[in-house]
Design a protein around this nucleic acid. Sequence first.
DNA 1: GCCTGGACTGGAATCGTTTCCATGTCATCG
DNA 2: CGATGACATGGAAACGATTCCAGTCCAGGC
Lengths: 338, 338
Amino acid sequence: MSSIRSTKSTIRDIASHAGVGAGTVSRVLNNHPHVSDSTRAKVLKAIEELNYRPSFSARQMRTGKSQVIGFITDEIASTQFAVNIIKGAQAVAWDYGKLVLVVNSDGNRAIEYEAIEMMLERGVDGIIYASMFHRQAQLPDSIHEVPAVLIDCFLPDRSLPSVVPDEFGAAHEATEILIRKGHRRIGLINLGGEAKPAIEGRLAGYTAAMQAHGLYDPDLIVHGGDEGAGRHGYASAMKLMKLTERPTAIFCAQDRIAAQAYRALHELGIAIPNEVAVMGFDNHIDVATTLSPLLSTMALPHLEMGQWAVEYLLSGAGEPLEPVQVKLPCPYIERQSI
Amino acid sequence: MSSIRSTKSTIRDIASHAGVGAGTVSRVLNNHPHVSDSTRAKVLKAIEELNYRPSFSARQMRTGKSQVIGFITDEIASTQFAVNIIKGAQAVAWDYGKLVLVVNSDGNRAIEYEAIEMMLERGVDGIIYASMFHRQAQLPDSIHEVPAVLIDCFLPDRSLPSVVPDEFGAAHEATEILIRKGHRRIGLINLGGEAKPAIEGRLAGYTAAMQAHGLYDPDLIVHGGDEGAGRHGYASAMKLMKLTERPTAIFCAQDRIAAQAYRALHELGIAIPNEVAVMGFDNHIDVATTLSPLLSTMALPHLEMGQWAVEYLLSGAGEPLEPVQVKLPCPYIERQSI
DNA sequence: GCCTGGACTGGAATCGTTTCCATGTCATCG
DNA sequence: CGATGACATGGAAACGATTCCAGTCCAGGC
């Protein structure tokens, strides 16, 4: 059918083909008022016939808006399930008619700085910076030249709006859920590594809930190692099970830790959830659903954070963004381990 | 320090500040010859002082190159580990000084068509279309208006270059590896669903290897169901183990299937790998490494496909791309299950 | 001393839109 | 019936770069 047009047509081609002025074509294109129906029809017909496609770069040059937002992330693939942040961000941007420029820095700060520079040169309408785990971020001053929102991280001076998971609330709720199920001795195997806010928030949430019910006992808390991938979960679970008054539930601050805890419990011949209940954290789908029994866990609101960030970036009708600091709830995903 | 400049400076501001013509500034910016060192120095100084940043949209309008490539994918998050395709693509684009516009269609064809349209309007230098599982794709004619490369899929008429995993070769090698280890009775639990080339390729590779060694027996093959997430793996493994002459190795055409097979073998009290070896497929990290023993598997070359696609798109110095059909090898990842 | 050609430079034209201003038309109102 | 707006429209200017053309300068060859 419509053969590939070799030479692009411009708004003036449309104008002369339709027998009108260039300004009129532009008015039709942008749905401006004060265009008669007959003229509009002629223009639309010409657009159709010449297979016209407007040039965004020309439009951007004139209006200053690129209809593109930049998305920078430090480690897109190290914790793969977090791609939902991108997915959510892109989906909302799409609803606003905007496209997303993505760059993955692999944690290399020089790349992040250069990426921001490149995005600025391209005149993006805004920038989202997403960390793949909850931490404090460090960004160049130039980030302030354009609206920007942070995901899963925050600036030392809080000068940029940010959205992070409510670590404290989630850990508190997880613990409460276990308590409500009748558990009194609840162990915590915490994270290791550099995700400070997550480590501290989850610990604090757990502690608060335990103390509120007079169940707190420091022996029940095992602090994580740095081995990554939750590998210390095995030894930690073993340690917990050796306690004289051993826990009837374990709250693992990460699904991967839970996977290793499962392994320990299996070896000890302890049944999940009958003898010991296990609560995870992250809703790391591939882990939670290959475990048997399926792991109950607190879900990190990745998708929602991505959505929130873009929504906030774009909904403000141009005026500077308030640097609000938002915490999103982490829903409880009930499966079989509790 | 350097205060945020409120009003952008243009190339003409630089020109007058440096006391030269606009053309000269442009020549400096683009490293053209025939600029004296002293002039160059003056211009560079002015750029520095005015904190000048060139406008890509103006540049694009004049040159026609956007320095951006489009990346469309059908289901970025359904099989999360495949984000490596994006990661690889973006990394190579970065090396070429280009940024990547990403849109996730969620399998919605209307979105894909519109995404291509939007990318064309923005004048992308090329488009990558990536499927998250190996299949035949369907794209609008307009895709031919710009250089394009397909990942993990192909067009019915093969009119676009594509890069896919070598399913046959990988399955063949996997089977050979098991045979070399001394196995004679090797079961195959194949995929279900709509990933035709993967299903057929893996079956053919297995079959060829078995036949070449005179080991082929149709009873050893279990065809997958549609339940998804490899859930049929449990029943399939059970079935295989009930064979009178039961297999000493199982080749699972997907790591998730292997996870379910593990469950069946555990229940039957069959030790992996001593009594039965298990080979996976996909190198679905989170699955393969939470299983115990760790799963040996064939890795899908996601990162490499992403890299190859962009490399091929960008390396051709402008002339139309040959529609080559490339198959990338799937490396064997040795762990503990064989 | 004149001519030639190369190096360097300034400035106009151009890319494809949007926006603003000026003009023309027509119905309405006093 | 002339003045007044509201509406419709054409066309020029502007956005910020690149590129081409023409002009200046200077060294070297005759």
